[in-house]
Each structure stands twice: as C-alpha cells, then as structure tokens.
C-alpha cells in the first residue's frame, strides 16, 4: 500500500479556505513537486508560481507549515510534520489567488530604497578596476547573491507592523550598492536607506537572516547601514 501525504492548501484570495488533498508520499519529493502533483492530478485550477525549479529564480516561495520557504529546494522529508503539509501564499503581500502573492510592493520598495545601479562609465570606457579583497567589495559580495524570493520580506514582523518599512531585501540591496565603487549614486542610496521606513525601523529580530534560503544576512547589511548613519558611508576600495 502506498503511503500518502495530506496537503492542506489555501484556496482563494485574502478570503478563502484550506482544502485538503492526498498525494503519494515519495522518497525524494520537494514541496514544489507536491504542489505540481496536486495541480496536475487533482486540482487543475490551483494557482501557484515557479520557473527554474533549481533555486535560482526566487519565484516559487510560499509559506510551508508556517514558515516562508523556497519550495523547489525544500524536501518534504526534511520538514517533519508527520505526513501533513500546510501551504499558504507568502504573508505581508497581497494575495492574488491560492498560493500566488503579488510581489509588486516588494519590488516597489526595492526601488524606493535606491536599489537601481547607476553606472558612471560608458561602453567606450575601460572596465573599472575593483579590488576583490577591499573591505567594501567583501561587504558587497557577502550580500550580493539575493534571488529576490521575498522570503525575508514575508518573514519580517516589522513589515507586518509598518507598511512603510522597506524590508530586509531592499535594504540588503542598498547596502551592496553603498559598498560598490562603481555605483554613481552611493550618497543618494544611503539617504534613501536612512529615510523614514528605512534601516532605523529594523528591530534586529533576525527573522530575515534565519529564513533566507541562500543564507545571506540582511540583518548584517541593515546593521551596516545603521553604522553608516553615525560614522559615515563605508570607504570604497580600501584594503579588507
């Protein structure tokens, strides 16, 4: 007899209900595999989002057993839960349908924090030299691999309390640009990160760092921004 997995999935928008589905429990299945199996075999109208399935695109994040996770790299057998999965859309974002959240506010805040790179050189200029061992480049590199999955944004309680708070991902991005010698708007990015709803609103709860699937530390980046409010922006290009 095949073992089964009970999956409770949120159906609807902000108003909705959980519906339960039974799928075969397999030796190696990710949460995304389970959702796909439900949609293909049991509930064709189920809405969810994914693209790469290998932890690069950041589009498949949802709330799994109460925690935000990237579902394509989350193996069911590592979750425990005694044969039951509870799946909801990411919190702190408007719900579009079923497991799909609207990431518009997330990316709007990313830009509001000054997240757009402003180049200072043209295509005719030689490539700018960046010392990979300089302190600023090391700080930027430690935070640069964000995949914009919004897991940290969903995990953050301050985002839940304060709709103006820019959130961990946007401030993490700002920190990478403040440390980037090639960025032409470092002061402006820093000003935006200091403004109302910026780094000063962070309460250092650490939910973002705890849940980041690629093991970045937005808490550390936000702490760096806070330090810069007192001691000035980091000097780019100095030895690490």
């Amino acid at each position: 007899m095949t073992e089964t997995l009970t999956v409770r999935i949120w159906r609807g928008k902000a108003e909705g209900r959980f519906e339960s589905y039974e799928v075969p429990a397999r030796a190696n299945q990710t949460v995304l595999d389970v959702v796909t199996e439900v949609q293909r075999s049991l509930e064709p109208a189920l809405a969810y989002r994914f693209a790469c399935r290998v932890g690069v695109c950041g589009s498949c994040a949802m709330t799994v057993n109460g925690r935000p996770r990237w579902t394509c790299r989350t193996h069911v057998r590592r979750l425990g839960g005694e044969g039951t999965l509870t799946l909801e859309p990411l919190r702190n974002l408007p719900h579009i349908k079923d497991l799909v959240s609207d990431l518009t506010p997330f990316f709007e805040k990313w830009h509001k924090a000054g997240g757009r790179f402003a180049g200072t050189a043209g295509r005719q200029d030689p490539p700018q030299r960046v010392d990979p061992q300089s302190a600023s480049r090391l700080a930027a590199s430690a935070a640069i691999e964000c995949i914009n999955c919004a897991v940290c944004y969903s995990a953050c309680d301050v985002v839940a309390w304060d709709q103006d708070y820019l959130g961990p991902a946007a401030l993490n991005r700002a920190w990478t640009l403040v440390n980037d010698a090639r960025h032409g708007a470092r002061e402006e990015t820093l000003d935006r990160a200091f403004a109302a709803g910026g780094c000063a609103s962070c309460h250092s709860q650490g939910n973002c760092t705890r849940h980041c699937p690629v093991e970045l530390s937005p808490s550390q980046s936000i702490a760096g921004l806070k330090r810069s409010t007192l001691f000035g922006p980091p000097k780019v290009g100095e030895p690490g």
Partner: peptide, 10 residues
C-alpha cells in the same frame, strides 16, 4: 509561538 518566530534572536 508561530514557527516563524521560534528562534533565539526573536
């Protein structure tokens, strides 16, 4: 406490 918050830092 929600699983989301069950860690030392929180």
């Amino acid at each position: 406490m929600q699983p989301l918050r069950s860690h030392e830092s929180y």
